[in-house]
Nucleic acid binder design. Structure first.
Lengths: 208, 208
DNA sequence: CGTATGCTCAAACGATCGTTTGATTCCAGT
DNA sequence: ACTGGAATCAAACGATCGTTTGAGCATACG
């Protein structure tokens, strides 16, 4: 299905990669294990053998990328916070850039779309899984935002971070109307995306 | 399934109402016609009789609410634009408030979640349907934003409107962490949501 | 060499999906 | 009162779903 499969990778990895692509394209319900295993070039029964069930596969698809993303975001935040003067833009960059980079070198540009779908699906168990594997990162960033925006009440801050998250998810998952023009390289386009996001989000957070 | 069915309504209307709720809750693929018709209290075959197919039903669920939403947004925009001095906040209110109101008196607070799901699903035919039934409203608002933000290039403006849309969709569909507190009335909470959205979006749009 | 162990495979399981059928009920028009 | 089209109904259609099974294959250890 247009998704190249690295035949040297392990069966588990090939399933995860194919699943990520297919979940992004057709959703968790819409992607069947038969399509998925065919794209991965593995036997149908391999999913249940290696992951136990389709639901557990979904969780592992998230876990693989979220572990990467969380680590990079926290590393970036730590480096930013250690500077003598930290700006709001710095913190936003620490939050945004790893996500955009994941699209690039993680091979999982599709993961952000999968993540966006997970937000859209109000499935409780999936939300709990995301909260368990994502919450501590959000809390650290929230603390840093609170330090840089002392004039905001806690409730106001939560609201704005929520709205920033919406804008980021929307942009990063390629929902929107903005498409990369053919005369702009992938790298350049991503850099422009980061800049637009940071400028917009910083202004929104600083709103009087 | 907890969704009260007005037994005096027509079969078509009852299907549409039950479908909206179930699509919001379980997604387009996840909601089956059997669950749907059971919730609506109608026969399974009624969907294909009245709508032709499940896909056409999905479209009609959108069309019923979008027609309302579009009409209210355009009316609000027209009224705002006729004033001698139009502010960015006014235009944003014309865009946001009808959507929030729809949650209230349209009985379709769930519709925004359905709409958010539609954004998440990258289904081409559904996106085309949305573009056909939604595009002209976005164009009118974009023109008004362009008038009020002449310093922005066309590309920059598109970017920011896209990010605003992301924030709005996120907030309106109840994705986020913000939940209504029990000591705040539904009406008050909605009003607060509008205010937060407008303040954040206006600042983002005005970003230097 | 024999035999465990980890993995892959084709095939089948029961369940559920969207859709269709054909008979039956309802009700307005003459 | 009769008739014809619209609406509803139970039942079944073939397709596809996630999952399970048991045989077959490989590699490593005694």
């Amino acid at each position: 299905m247009g998704v190249p499969v690295n035949s040297s990778a392990s069966t588990k990895e090939r399933i995860l990669t194919a699943a990520e692509a297919l979940f992004a394209q057709r959703g968790f319900e819409g992607a069947s294990l038969r399509q998925l295993t065919a794209a991965a070039g593995v036997n149908l029964a391999a999913v249940n053998y290696h992951f136990g069930s389709k639901d557990h596969l979904v969780e592992q698809v998230f876990k693989r990328r979220l572990d990467q993303l969380n680590a990079r975001r926290l590393a970036a935040l730590k480096q930013v916070a250690s500077q003598s003067e930290t700006t709001l833009e710095d913190v936003l960059a620490a939050f945004i850039r790893p996500a955009l980079d994941l699209s690039h070198d993680g091979g999982g540009g599709l993961f952000m779309r999968v993540l966006a779908r997970a937000f859209a699906e109000h499935d409780d168990s999936l939300r709990k899984f995301l909260s368990d594997n994502y919450g501590h990162v959000m809390r650290q960033f929230t603390a840093e935002f609170a330090r840089l925006l002392p004039q905001l009440s806690k409730e106001e801050l939560y609201w704005r971070i929520d709205l920033v998250t919406g804008a980021l998810t929307h942009a990063m998952s390629g929902f929107g109307i903005i498409q990369r023009k053919s005369d702009v390289s992938e790298v350049t386009h991503r850099e422009q995306t980061v800049e637009h996001l940071i400028r917009f989000a910083a202004a929104g957070l600083r709103a009087p």
